[in-house]
Design a protein around this nucleic acid. Structure first.
Lengths: 161, 161
DNA sequence: TAGCGGATGATAATAATTATCATCCGGTAA
DNA sequence: TTACCGGATGATAATTATTATCATCCGCTA
């Protein structure tokens, strides 16, 4: 069946090992230096079942590298996102975006300029199929964020290529 | 059919009129004063097809109330969210959250403490049914955010009640 | 092993948001 | 209608997250 399931710690442990094993090769391929700080940030992130903030990663990495700078952690996390080794849980975070539409609906977000449009998709409103819980969580609702390139950004991207 | 569609400006105009007509009654019911600033912020927000930042709402409202403070706009937007008249496009925005898992997956977020867990749900990965575009947008992928209460917050909420 | 260029640490600067507080004004009850 | 109470506002300071700057360092290639 296709029910949603929480990803298990066991799965994550295997996944993390795999990712870390490939990490140095991937950095080299991208022309990035393999520094102990970079590896440490990557390790903490990929081992975390949580979705940590920069500050949290900093606290953890610091135990092994007491001299690491918070700025380095921020820079490294951004770098990891740029090369596709990590992602932000939300692409919209610099400032809060508010939505006056309280009817159930979803969003399409331009990954380049971050424009957001509302979409109506009854099918998306039925994703939970009436399920009330998932593991320890009591489910309340869900929202779908479709990632896309808007018309303008599509043109801009084509022009740059 | 149930295909996703962009919400039209026409629909929004009607929706906005309706929401504004009900707004004062809803405020009264909640014990909130009807101030011109509050109404103006609500009007700008609900008329916006975009998903504006506080600063953007501020710029717009200021044309009618040149003395309004940015702090008031921030406060008012938060208040609107608290009483359910608006919502944040993302509940996670105070600081960026990073995810080291680059495999397709989705998230369940506690709306109270903001804990995030990964979920695996093959069905969610098929939402776009191979569609390539939606209006002007070129689709790239989608992610589902399930809103929930985690175990701890459920207990805390029950204790407070 | 030398040297180039990217990476880092320290710190300042910026941006977004929240806190503080005196004043103001919407809502109620006389 | 008027007086009053408590929430709302405006001005501003404070806080928090993130990014920029820059001198120094060190991973990597030749």
């Amino acid at each position: 069946m296709d029910r949603p399931t929480l990803i298990s710690d066991k799965w994550r442990a295997g996944y993390a090992a795999q990712r870390l094993a490939e990490f140095t090769a991937r950095c080299r391929r991208r022309g990035l230096a393999i520094t102990p700080q970079r590896v440490a940030v990557m390790r903490v992130l990929v081992n975390s079942g949580d979705h940590p903030r920069a500050e949290t990663v900093f606290a953890e990495v610091r135990r092994q590298y007491p001299n690491i700078s918070l700025a380095t952690v921020h820079r490294t996390l951004e770098t990891l996102c740029e090369i596709g080794e990590a992602r932000k849980v939300t692409p919209l975070h610099d400032s809060a975006r508010y939505d006056g539409n309280t009817a159930p609906h979803h969003h399409v977000v331009c990954v380049r300029c971050r424009k957001v449009c509302d979409i109506d998709a009854p099918e998306f409103n039925r994703l939970l199929h009436g399920r009330r819980t998932l593991g320890d969580f009591e489910l309340l609702g869900c929202s779908v964020e479709v990632h896309a390139l808007c018309g303008e950004c599509r043109k801009a991207a084509a022009a740059n290529a």
